[in-house]
């Protein structure tokens, strides 16, 4: 008898899953509670049991009956067309059951935005190691041996030949060594500078490097591409200027400033990225014919852009990871 009770309960649980409307509900109700229904049959059998057996399974049978009844009653209310009960008074102003949603770090979100724009412009995305060789980080990028940037003051060295990369530019070298032009990619990642930690500088930050090498690449295209980026990122009315500058691995080199107009302070030009045409020495170093191919490259600091965009005054908050900061974005 107990086995049959157990089986009926198990079967009912299975049947419950098939109730999808008031019609199927009624079918199941008939299956269990009609005169020839499963529960009625069990009660019929029960009556023919010995007293001992009745004692053993009586309680279980009653429990089953009330369980099945209550489940079916519950479901009755959930189908339109079935009888609608008067709603009890309840408090609409109680807070809803909120779900906890996590957050990407704001630097990663900023990076996502940058990546999305460049992906749309036909760029691939590549990565490289943070612990780099001096060759990839400096020499191949046309830094002369006694260039100030190679000083101990700016670079974290591991030994004479290895260091923590000071920019994402070595990924350019890796990429061009692995693949002949055309190469069009951005290369995001962490970089390190041996600088004292302060509100304005941190010993590490994130950079996005860009590179495009082909036979017909020009400074005009570099300008057009970066302005397209600035317009998408900062808004279509962004004011910008390309200012000649100097980097060992590009020539001509430029810095791009955008006009920053705070509400309550005088506006000013703010540098957002460095760029230029890949120096022929760099192309030669990676075995790309610098007479035939021309390239452009650019690099921007993600922190700098996020500081601007989200009006953050201190770069250290990015790396303090205070939950009250993380959950704002």
């Amino acid at each position: 008898m107990t086995q049959k009770i157990l089986l009926t309960e198990s079967e009912f649980n299975s049947d419950l899953l098939n109730i999808i409307d008031s019609k199927s509900l009624e079918e199941i109700r008939i299956k269990y509670f009609s005169k020839k229904g499963k529960i009625s049959q069990l009660f019929d059998e029960f009556r023919s049991l010995s007293a001992d057996e009745k004692k053993l399974s009586g309680k279980r049978l009653n429990e089953l009956k009330s369980f099945v009844q209550s489940k079916l009653d519950e479901l009755k209310n959930s189908f339109p067309g079935s009888e609608i009960k008067d709603e009890k008074f309840f408090d609409l102003s109680l807070p809803g059951r909120e779900k906890i949603i996590g957050s990407k770090h704001i630097l990663i979100q900023t990076l996502d935005e940058i990546k999305l724009i460049f992906k749309g412009l036909g760029f691939s995305i590549h990565e490289g190691p943070e612990l780099e060789s001096d060759y990839n980080n400096f020499e191949a990028l046309n830094f002369p041996p006694d260039h100030p940037a190679r000083d101990m003051q700016d670079t974290f060295f591991v030994n004479k030949n290895f260091l923590l990369r000071t920019h994402t530019s070595p990924v350019q070298i890796r990429l061009m060594k692995a693949q002949q032009p055309p190469v069009r990619a951005i290369m995001p990642g962490k970089v390190y500078r041996n600088e004292a930690v302060s509100a304005k500088s941190y010993c590490l930050f994130h950079q996005v490097e860009g590179l495009y090498v082909d036979t017909d690449v020009t400074f005009a295209e570099l300008k057009g591409t970066l302005i397209a980026f600035a317009r998408q990122f900062f808004g279509k009315d962004v004011r910008y200027r390309f200012r000649p500058s100097f980097f060992p691995f590009t020539e001509p080199s430029a810095e791009v400033d955008i006009w920053w107009q705070p509400k309550d302070k005088p506006g000013r030009w703010l540098e957002i990225l460095g760029c230029g045409m890949v120096d022929p020495n760099v192309l030669d170093n990676v075995g790309v014919d610098s007479e035939k191919y021309v390239g452009y490259a650019f690099g921007m600091g993600v922190e700098r852009i996020a500081l601007l965009k989200y009006k953050i005054g201190d770069i250290r908050v990015f790396f303090d990871n205070d939950k009250r900061f993380l959950t704002q974005f």
Binding site: K115, I125, R184, A220, E221, K223, F242, P244
Partner: peptide
């Protein structure tokens, strides 16, 4: 003058595979 470099309106996009190592 860099400002005399014309603003181009269109760029060429190659149709080869675009890798995204960060995806």
């Amino acid at each position: 003058g860099f400002d005399k470099v014309p603003l181009i309106e269109k760029i060429n996009v190659t149709l080869d595979e675009k890798i995204d190592q960060t995806a």
